[in-house]
């Protein structure tokens, strides 16, 4: 393989243990001497740092390009406002830009017949990079009140170094920020739990990822021998179950404190080893 694989850790439902799986996989792989990059793409609620505790060395603003109209050149033709699909430019007496609605597509700049529009960056969040022991760490932090996360997710993902195994911690759900995260990943790990909510949201995630043609497998977290509905679903759908992580109050308590599980529950090392072996055979 010319470059190391990238793995997205996602989940249809929030709170199923996506970050738990991602940080433990990262820590285990790093402990085995692999070069690891942890990229937290859950930019609305980035939480991986709470467990990996990286030393942040750099914080760079992430921005999207928004138009600025040179009123001396503008002939008030109105083409920029007409072409904007996002209603970010109003044609009043002259064009008025609403940068918070702009998606940064560049349509207005291209259409302006007199080159009166240039673009300026508008910050939507921050990309922080650093080191968590041997793990190279990056995370996006969306500004509070900012609606648009995919450009920030893309800004996190361009930190990807093909020489390292990359783990993308995805936002929950199946909508556009998730797509922005899992695109171009080599494999998706879907973390779910054996409850009606967990199964329902897993079904939605499968419906989303299958047409994209990306390979994926399922991790059943808080597995309960009395409830095999997720495993049954996976069998029917021919989806590999990569790991079943047992329900254990000690896991919840350790997680609550922001600690890694390996000290208190050393068997989690073996679990991560087994999980990685199952992922690797599918790459």
């Amino acid at each position: 393989m010319s470059s190391s694989p990238s793995i997205a850790i996602a989940s249809g439902k929030g709170g199923t243990g996506k970050t738990t799986v991602a940080v433990h996989l990262a820590a285990w792989l790093a402990g085995r001497g692999h070069e690891i990059q942890y990229l937290d793409c859950d930019v609305e609620e980035p939480n991986g740092h709470l467990f990996l505790k990286p030393e942040i060395k750099a914080a760079e603003p992430a921005a999207i390009p928004v138009p600025v109209v040179d009123m001396n050149r503008c002939t008030a033709c109105g083409k920029c406002a007409a072409v904007c699909e996002f209603n970010a430019i109003a044609m009043l007496k002259k064009p008025m830009v609403f940068p918070e609605l702009c998606h940064g597509c560049g349509a207005c700049t291209l259409v302006c017949p007199v080159d009166a529009i240039r673009e300026e960056p508008r910050d939507i969040g921050t990309v922080e990079t650093g080191l968590a022991g041997p793990i190279r760490f990056a995370q996006g932090r969306l500004n509070v009140g900012e609606p648009m996360s995919p450009p920030l997710i893309r800004a996190v993902k361009i930190r990807r170094d093909p020489a390292a195994i990359a783990l993308f911690d995805s936002p929950p759900g199946t909508s556009c920020p998730v797509i922005a995260t899992v695109r171009a990943a080599d494999f998706i790990v879907l973390v779910t739990e054996p409850s009606p909510f967990g199964l329902h949201d897993l079904t939605l995630a499968v419906e989303t990822f299958r047409p994209m043609g990306l390979p994926f497998g399922v991790v059943v977290n808080r597995a309960d021998p009395a409830d095999e509905r997720v495993q049954d679903f996976c069998r029917q759908q021919e989806i590999p179950v990569l790991a079943e992580l047992p329900d254990d109050r000690r896991v919840a308590e350790t997680y609550a404190r922001g600690e890694l599980l390996f000290d208190r529950l050393p068997e989690w090392r073996d679990r991560m080893a087994a999980l990685w072996a199952r992922i690797e055979e599918r790459l």
């Binding site: 970050t19 609305e44 609620e45 709470l50 467990f51 969306l142 009140g145 609550a256 922001g258």
Partner: peptide
């Protein structure tokens, strides 16, 4: 969940919100 666009749409002009959280670092 989250703080992005869907959440903003869910809370603007509401009378009150209840945040259900859990006692974890996250």
């Amino acid at each position: 969940p989250g703080t992005g666009c869907p959440v903003i749409a869910a809370v603007t002009n509401a009378n009150a919100i209840l945040v259900v959280t859990e006692p974890t670092v996250s």
